[in-house]
Structures are given as structure tokens and as C-alpha cells.
């Protein structure tokens, strides 16, 4: 059963409890910063008369996990996309590739690692809710099964169609995400991309990569064939030249 978070921007009061709770839970140094960084995994900010949280969306088919050459990022069965710092070699392809620009880097360290929200994976396996959802005093961020959260979000929109934009953000974006958002302000105004195709970006590369074995076979035979033909032509030419010179003699 995959778990997730639902963030309802209309309920958020911008108190920042989630951000502080996250710092504490994950033992991240320093104060909560203005933007998400390797040391601040989630922020809450006023935009367009409402409040918006930023955190990893925990994609159903995570782009970051698909691009990581060493498989340091993986989607776990319960939903969280987790990071194994011991494997990471710091190529930063995950940062480049993430459609939501989530992974951040420790630019100031000689032995740097990636930092991003891990949906409190440790707590979830213990059956607990995430630290941010637990800390939220008004239930703007709630934790639950993804399917239940989707139903809940759709119900809220149905009951108050004027108060919400008729869209659950994360239902289809980039193939769907475990973190869902609803709001009264159009999402593109809140700094979220509203043009993300529902096809996970990872499929585009897989279409190419999955063809490699057959490509190698065909191309290899083709190249060898060319060599075979041209070399053979050479031999024939040589043999002919030889007989000719013999004839002349």
C-alpha cells in the first residue's frame, strides 16, 4: 500500500511548524532557509495570498531514481523515494533531471551528498505519520494512503468548487506523485509546473535504452559484414593483380 501526503493550501496558516519539525526529525543543521537546500528539505512560503509548501513529490515513477547511475535513489514499497548516501558519487544527474527541481547539493562540503525530503521513510516503516504532518496544527498537511488522500482531496473540491481549483496536483503530473496538493490559486502561479505530461519522463529514456541490446547485435553484424565484403573485394583484386602479373611474365 503506498502512502503519501496531502497538502491543502487553503488550510495552511504559514506557521512553519512542518519545516522546523523536518529539520529536527532529520537532524538537519542550521535554521530553516528561504528556499529548499540540502539542509532544508521543506519550506512554506506566502504566495499569491495563500501559502505553499515545497518538498519532494515522491513520484510514482521517480525520474531521479531512473537517472541515478548507481541506484542511490529508489522508490520503496510504501511510497517514499529514499536516498542511499553511501552509494552516491555526486554526478548530480538527479538534480538536473527531477521535473520538480527537488534534490539539492551540499556545495559547501568537501565530501558532499544530496539532500531531499525522504517522506520520513523510517517513521513510515514503523507505522507512524511523517514529522511534518504530525507537527501541522491545522491539518493542512495530512498523511495517509495515497488512494484515500486522492478521494479526500476530490471530495473537498466537490464540496467547495468555488474555493478550489478543480485539480489535484500530483494525480497525473510526471506520471503521478505520492505527495498531492490542492489550492484555491492556480498551481502555475504558485511556482508549480502545470504543463508536465502524465507520461513519466523516465519512459522516454527507457524507450532508447531498452533497444540497446538489439541495436548492438544488428549494428555489430552489419559492421562485420561490411568488413567482410570490403576485405573480400581486396583479396579478389589482389588475386587478380597477381594472375595478371603472372600472365605478363
Amino acid at each position: 500500500m503506498t502512502m503519501g501526503l496531502l497538502f491543502d493550501a487553503t488550510r495552511c496558516i504559514g506557521c512553519g511548524s512542518c519545516a522546523s519539525a523536518c529539520k529536527e526529525q532529520n537532524k538537519l543543521p542550521g535554521e530553516v532557509e528561504e528556499r529548499t537546500t540540502a539542509y532544508t528539505w521543506t519550506t512554506v512560503k506566502p504566495v499569491e495570498g495563500t501559502y505553499m509548501r515545497k518538498l519532494c513529490m515522491h513520484c510514482q515513477v521517480p525520474t531521479c531514481a531512473s537517472v541515478c547511475p548507481v541506484g542511490a535513489l529508489t522508490k520503496s514499497a510504501e511510497g517514499p523515494v529514499v536516498y542511499d548516501a553511501k552509494k552516491c558519487m555526486g554526478c548530480r544527474y538527479c538534480m538536473m533531471a527531477c521535473p520538480f527541481d527537488v534534490p539539492k547539493y551540499q556545495w559547501d562540503r568537501p565530501v558532499p551528498i544530496i539532500g531531499k525530503c525522504i517522506l520520513c521513510a523510517g517513521r513510515i516503516t514503523k507505522g507512524e505519520s511523517t514529522a511534518c504532518a504530525t507537527a501541522c496544527p491545522v491539518g493542512a498537511t495530512i498523511f495517509g494512503k495515497r488512494d484515500d488522500l486522492i478521494r479526500d482531496a476530490q471530495d473537498r473540491i466537490k464540496q467547495n468548487p468555488i474555493g478550489y481549483v478543480d485539480h489535484v496536483y500530483g494525480l497525473t503530473e510526471a506520471g503521478g506523485t505520492s505527495v498531492l496538493m490542492i489550492s484555491s490559486v492556480p498551481f502555475e502561479k504558485l511556482g508549480l509546473k502545470n504543463d508536465l505530461p502524465s507520461e513519466p519522463p523516465a519512459l522516454r529514456t527507457w524507450q532508447v535504452l531498452s533497444n540497446i541490446p538489439s541495436f548492438v547485435a544488428v549494428w555489430g553484424v552489419f559492421l562485420y559484414g561490411i568488413h567482410w565484403i570490403t576485405a573480400r573485394r581486396d583479396e579478389v583484386a589482389k588475386a587478380e593483380a597477381h594472375t595478371q602479373s603472372e600472365d605478363r611474365r
Binding site: S66, V67, P69, V70, G71, A72, C91, V208, L209
Partner: peptide, 8 residues
């Protein structure tokens, strides 16, 4: 550590 889905 292999990840055959990764171009990198």
C-alpha cells in the same frame, strides 16, 4: 551498483 535505466 547497476542501474540499467540510467543513461549516465
Amino acid at each position: 551498483y547497476w542501474n540499467t535505466h540510467s543513461v549516465m
